[in-house]
């Protein structure tokens, strides 16, 4: 951990939208780290599971034998899943069914709003974000705190030391995003 309530925030960097997080993280005075190995993981106070292709990430997590290491890390470190990352955190995944870490008691349907032609801009708490081939969350328990919805769908949720968003704030060039700030606060609470 770095001093003065500043942290090292990791982004799982096996595949996907990793580096756009850097300016958001650095704008909060935190340090950014791309995480590819068990060694990297030991150096971060919280981990972002970024946007990308969840199927690819699962294959690479298995190919590089990171599954057990991540399960152990997730037990007592803050984790924020974005889009594909949200899918990895789900209890069950549909369209199609696939493996997940089951960190939050929610069902997640992949590509639930449609293909790329249905990808769209949106504002969450006044901040422009994008939904890209986005998944849809159904909460299975009232314990999950819903920060924001798109129509009726929960799109930004928090549960215990976990956070998930089905949209992308990281590509918006106003630093830091409210979601990055919320994740920083989640890490601060845990420390």
């Amino acid at each position: 951990m770095t001093p003065n309530n500043n942290f090292t925030i990791g982004v799982l960097a096996l595949q996907g939208c990793v580096y756009p997080h850097r300016p958001h993280i650095e704008a909060m005075g935190d340090a950014f780290k791309a995480v590819k190995t068990e060694q990297d993981l030991k150096q971060v106070d919280g981990l972002i599971l970024p946007g990308g292709e969840s199927t690819t990430m699962l294959k690479l997590i298995n190919a590089f034998k990171l599954k057990d290491v991540l399960v152990e890390y997730f037990k007592d470190h803050p984790v924020w899943g974005i889009c594909a990352g949200t899918i990895l955190m789900a209890k069950t995944v549909t369209n199609p069914e696939q493996d997940s870490f089951g960190l939050i008691n929610m069902d997640v349907e992949r590509n639930s709003y449609g293909r790329q032609l249905e990808s769209t801009h949106y504002k969450i708490e006044g901040y422009p974000v994008s939904f890209i081939r986005a998944p849809r969350i159904s909460c299975n328990t009232p314990d999950i705190h819903v920060h924001a919805r798109r129509d009726d769908d929960p799109v930004w949720i928090e549960y215990d030391h976990y956070m998930a968003t089905t949209f992308h704030p990281e590509m918006t060039l106003q630093f830091p995003s409210p979601m990055h700030t919320a994740f920083h606060n989640l890490i601060a609470d845990k420390n």
Binding site: L14, G16, C17, G52, C83, Q116, S130, I132, R133, M171
Partner: peptide, 8 residues
């Protein structure tokens, strides 16, 4: 944005 998701 979709291309960003395909990186790596």
């Amino acid at each position: 944005g979709l291309a960003e998701m395909l990186k790596g």
